[in-house]
């Protein structure tokens, strides 16, 4: 095999872009864990439902996938708000294991409800067929847009959390709940907003994924594991970190595919995450928590 610059470039560009979208999937997972301390495997169920929603709206023929996504995001924001208000708040004080059982149950419900409603058939959004070609590298427009939007939204969310009053309040309530209560923050309301943002980000990630990949209900399980691993690799409570983790996984997938085989690449990725966890037990960008 001849590893020409074009071949390597193709791998890197696609790896980074697809990885960005993985990052977008992981972002919301990380946010929920950071703020509400719940390992939310159902997050991926949200992503898959968003994919179906975008798919259905688009198949009406009036709206393109991006407008459809824009339409789905506020709906999911509302659903996320309700999710926290009605369900998550009830399990907040339980152990991590209970969170896993609960959100896994929710993931089962979401996944198989999708299978019941939409069947087991594979769906695929008719793509624009437009490509961007430069120097022998060919990138599908949807992946370029998806990667870009994912990167921008990660940056936007990061800035919003770091700079705005609401973001700071959410971070404060995550870091020190009692302290936040003492200075008069409505922690429960802030948590609802945070979960709503997380579920809305699932909708965004779903919308972006729907534009270029195949859709079937069981994808939810793979995405759940993907998000979990990225977040564990990069360290919780670091939004940009989980975005970076996504990019790392994307590039590793690409490089492993090119140099070994996609299946061996999966072995490599898991082995590398394993090693990374031993070297950085709080994740790549994690902070050591005080004893």
């Amino acid at each position: 095999m001849e590893l020409t610059p074009a071949v390597i470039g193709q791998m890197l560009v696609t790896g980074v872009l697809v990885g960005s979208i993985y990052g977008a999937v992981a972002m919301g997972f990380s946010l929920i864990f950071g703020v509400v301390r719940i390992v939310n495997f159902a997050h991926a169920g949200g992503v898959v439902w968003a994919m179906y929603a975008v798919f259905l709206v688009t198949s009406g023929g009036v709206l393109g996938p991006y407008l459809a996504t824009a339409l789905v995001i506020p709906v999911f924001f509302g659903l996320g708000y309700l999710l926290q208000r009605a369900l998550m708040v009830r399990i907040a004080d339980m152990t991590e294991e209970m969170h896993i059982v609960f959100t896994f149950g929710l993931l089962l419900v979401l996944t198989y409800l999708a299978q019941f409603a939409f069947g087991h058939d594979v769906r695929f959004l008719a793509s624009s067929e437009r490509h961007l070609a430069f120097g022998g590298i060919v990138v599908q427009r949807e992946i370029l847009v998806g990667g870009g939007v994912a990167a921008l939204s990660a940056l936007g969310l990061h800035v919003a959390l770091a700079r705005t009053w609401l973001g700071k309040a959410i971070r404060a309530s995550a870091d020190n709940r009692r302290g936040a209560v003492l200075i008069g923050l409505d922690v429960r309301a802030l948590q609802r907003v945070a979960v709503a943002v997380s579920v809305a980000s699932a909708a965004l990630a779903g919308g972006l994924l729907a534009t270029f990949t195949t859709l079937y209900p069981l994808r939810a399980f793979e995405l759940a594991i993907l998000a979990f691993l990225i977040v564990v690799l990069s360290g919780i409570r670091s939004l940009l970190g989980s975005f970076g983790g996504g990019v790392i996984v994307g590039v590793l997938e690409g490089a492993g595919t090119l140099l070994l085989s996609p299946s061996l690449a999966q072995l490599g990725i898991h082995a590398l995450i394993f090693a990374a966890l031993l070297i950085r037990p709080e994740g790549l960008w994690g902070r050591k928590e005080a004893v």
Partner: peptide, 15 residues
């Protein structure tokens, strides 16, 4: 050999 469940995008393989 590729892992079907993990495949979101296939230009890597085709490349």
């Amino acid at each position: 050999a590729y892992t079907a469940a993990k495949l979101t995008e296939a230009t890597g393989i085709v490349n």
